[in-house]
Design a protein around this nucleic acid. Structure first.
Length: 126
RNA sequence: AACGGCAACCGCUCUAUCGCUGGCAGAGCAAUCUGCGAGAGGAAAGUCCGGGCAGCAAAGAGUCGCCAUACUUCCUAACGGGAAGGGACACGUUCCUGCAAAGGGCGUGUUACAGACAGUGCCGCAGAAAAUAUACCGCUAUAUUCGAGGCCAAAAGCCUCUUGUGUAGUAAGGGUGAAAACGCGAGGCAAGAGCUCACGACGGGUGCAGCGAUGCACUUGGUGGUAAACCUUAUGGGCUGAAAGACCAAAUAUACCGACAGUUAAGGGUUGACUCGUCCGUUGUCGGGGGGUAGGUUGAUAAAGGCAGCCGGUGACGGUUGUCUUAGAUUAAUGAUAGAGAACCGUCUUGGCGGUUACAGAACCCGGCUUAUAGGUUGCCGUUUCUU
RNA sequence: GGCCCCGUAGUUCAGCUGAAUAGAACGUCGGAUUCCGGUUCCGAAAGUCGUGGGUUUGAAUCCCGCCGGGGUCA
């Protein structure tokens, strides 16, 4: 239930390009999310791209830790989105960008993720 | 014991829960599941050097250019790295010489440390002059000239001093400057000058010592600085870089490649330029296949490996014996949360409370260099204090 | 994983083949003109030349090491 495997990561360059070309953007500081409804080719309904930009976090250590924390939060909460997707029979691609220039705190990040998922599920219901 | 310096080493630990990437074993047609075990560094960083490895129609040769290095010997696979030694400079000195100034010896530290008679350039301002001394002042000789004095009774003439001018000699002196024509003393001279001589600095030659840098002695030359200015000398360098390259599967229609046959001259490539050499060329047939799209396997992890002992060496390091196996991702793993402990700091107070636990994250692999780094351990050296 | 370039007043740039006062425009400040403001004119201030060393008599300039910023290669 709380797994996070290779299948769930977004690797297709074409989909990534479409994702950033679309206008579906949500902002819950310090996170920025692009999302896109995709065709159901892939066995996994929900694919995600986790980004920590070099412009904001200059050291590789900081980028690694930020990505790990974000991944951990996502791993614990993605089932909420999956339920909605299965109800609607949809498939989705996500990119979660970190846009602050300091290291995050885990508990604050959890709180941010809760709010973020609420918003995404609202969008999906429409 | 405290503080400081240098060198070497370590650089948080444990438990629970939930996860990630490989390996081995088992189950399953398969997806996958279960179990066991592994999973960032001393700098993984900067990309400043050197190599391995790989490719390039020749990746050949020569000349020129370009780049790098620059005391000597050694170590090393190699290096622009390291070790030992030499020179220079700085500091210290319970040592030696000396009245002193100073010199020598010893110790510590620093050092991008080849060549400035192979040539060219540059040296602002100031200063006479900044490098072929085209001589401004001064000094000297000589010619001439204004004037004064002396010799003489007077004239002529001669001598001394003096004013101006011309010619010649002269770098000893001239407030400058970072630097002034090797320094300094004596001789010499009309005045002067390495013109000559002694001593000293520097360059060349010869002899001796040393593998050599170099040192010492003798002799000779006659010298501004600057080569992180051009340059000269010596040595080295083909270019590119894992996004290299090899293989497999999918996919498609005319860039290209290979073989064979015919054609033989314009031209093109050869990795900065030229020359020689060499390769290619245009048509037809056959075979393979570009670009674009999206994958997998390999390259790619046992090595110039680590640790310990012994031997050789002043040392870097080498030899030998034993032992160990130690990451391999690829939109990119090595983690998160909670609790406990350890170390250090602060505070009140004698065990609580609060805080801190650095720098930093592999991407083909090695050897160095440089830079960042809380705290701790060990060794050596120096200073101060206390005790015996 | 490689390679290249740039850091100079508050801002945008010169100066970079060494020479002592580091210059220009805009902006800022003060004064004049105006009833007031703008325009215009006059004047002034403002610089560790990114940083630490070295070469040189002398460094923004030459050499080396760091720091920061930007670009480029599938």
């Amino acid at each position: 239930m709380y797994t996070f495997r290779k299948d769930e990561r977004l690797c297709n360059k074409k989909i990534i390009g479409d994702l950033y070309a679309s206008d579906n953007r949500l902002l819950v500081y310090p996170l920025s999310v692009h999302w896109l409804i995709t065709e159901q080719k892939h066995p996994c309904r929900l694919q995600v791209l986790i980004v920590a930009p070099k412009k904001k976090l200059h050291h590789a250590v900081d980028r690694n830790r930020t990505k790990r924390l974000m991944r951990e939060c996502y791993r614990h909460r993605k089932h909420l989105m999956l339920e909605t997707l299965e109800q609607k029979n949809l498939s989705m691609a996500l990119s979660i960008n970190y846009i602050h220039n300091a290291l995050p705190d885990y508990h604050q990040l959890e709180h941010t993720f809760d709010k973020l998922l609420e918003k995404i599920i609202e969008e999906l219901q429409r």
